[in-house]
């Protein structure tokens, strides 16, 4: 398949997956606190694909409309993080996180606002944890809500302008117990920063392996 490229070594992939796993676990803990509900995570999937490939990956999984909160990050590696879920879940999520703080009417009125804050907390915890693990600072943009079908979302997501660039695409499924809410945490990274990331990952492997036993 021509849009699958694999510039990462197996070991680096594993390390990156674990890094994301650690970040997302922290994000899930935040979501858990906000929703007062159990949050279940899948094992992360990681793929190095072209931009078009990333769009296809999501499009084939979700045919309905989606909502996403996105946040760009910059630093020694840059990219974009997304909290994605089906549009039909949006209100349920808002109600779960706003809980007793808001009436139903207020919640409906503040839907986008509440989504932004939820995304902000979840994505920030994830990215910040990863930055801490790698011992390199990251700057994060303000979160923003985007709506549309899978295709639309990804057309908006041209992080850099280069055509046909390769990106690192990571995603994790999550589900909130007791409520019918599911979604993805996804991350898209540029190739230049991918190379920077490789160096960091190598360092990271050395460090974490060193202190585990």
């Amino acid at each position: 398949m021509s849009d699958h490229v694999v510039p990462l070594e197996e070991m680096e992939r594993d390390a990156l997956t674990e890094l994301v796993n650690i970040g997302v676990s922290r994000a899930a803990a935040s979501l858990r606190k906000m929703a007062g509900q159990q949050v279940l995570l899948s094992v992360p999937s990681l793929e190095v694909v072209t931009r078009g490939g990333a769009a296809t990956l999501i499009r084939e999984r979700e045919s309905g409309d989606l909502v996403a909160v996105r946040q760009d990050f910059e630093g020694v590696f840059s990219g974009r993080a997304l909290l994605i879920f089906p549009e039909s879940n949006s209100m349920a999520l808002v109600r779960a996180v706003a809980g007793s703080a808001l009436s139903d009417a207020e919640a409906a009125e503040m839907e986008d606002e509440a989504l932004t804050e939820t995304g902000n907390v979840v994505l920030n915890s994830c990215l910040a944890t990863m930055a801490n693990m790698l011992q390199r600072p990251l700057t994060m943009s303000l979160p923003q809500v985007v709506r549309g079908n899978g295709v639309g979302l990804f057309e908006l997501m041209q992080v850099s302008t280069e055509e046909g660039g390769v990106v690192l695409f990571l995603y994790i499924n999550f589900a909130i117990n007791d409520r019918d809410i599911r979604g993805y945490i996804a991350m898209l990274m540029d190739l230049p920063s991918l190379q920077a990331l490789r160096l960091l990952i190598t360092e990271f492997i050395r460090r974490v392996i060193g202190d585990e036993v």
Partner: peptide, 9 residues
């Protein structure tokens, strides 16, 4: 108060 729990922050 922030979710950005980076050591720098």
């Amino acid at each position: 108060a922030t979710a950005n729990i980076q050591d720098e922050i």
